[in-house]
């Protein structure tokens, strides 16, 4: 299935000291269609949500979330991590159909 990336915004420092705890904030543009609504013709609008979000820092999962229809449209998450070595931080949002949006940032340890 072709991936259709959604616009995202990631806020995190580009550099940090080893052992620091840094805050990471993420947003993804997604309607989070609940599956409970009906269209003008009375047909149920199919559920279309981000179901899973995972953040890896040097291949280790530092934060993950299973998300349901009760998460607001354009899902926002803020969480933290302890700074170890320099390396990539990869963010993956997966919808119910398995389509993924993937973003990577590099954290440089000073």
């Amino acid at each position: 299935m072709a991936d259709t990336p959604h616009p995202t915004r990631i806020s995190m420092p580009a550099t940090a000291k080893r052992g620091d705890i840094i805050d990471i904030k993420t947003l993804i543009q997604h309607e989070m269609e609940t599956g409970y609504r009906r269209d003008a013709n009375g047909r149920v609008i199919p559920r279309d949500i981000v179901a899973h979000f995972e953040v890896r820092y040097l291949d280790e999962i530092i934060f993950a979330a299973d998300t349901f229809a009760g998460v607001s449209a354009n899902p926002y998450f803020a969480f933290s991590t302890i700074v170890g070595d320099s390396g990539p931080v990869t963010f993956t949002w997966t919808d119910l159909a398995g389509r993924k949006t993937v973003e990577t940032r590099t954290l440089t340890v000073t």
Binding site: I22, V71, S72, F77
Partner: peptide, 14 residues
Amino acid sequence: GPRSGRARVQSTIR
């Protein structure tokens, strides 16, 4: 997990 550093999460819900 241990690499989270701090057990704090923020989000918006319905």
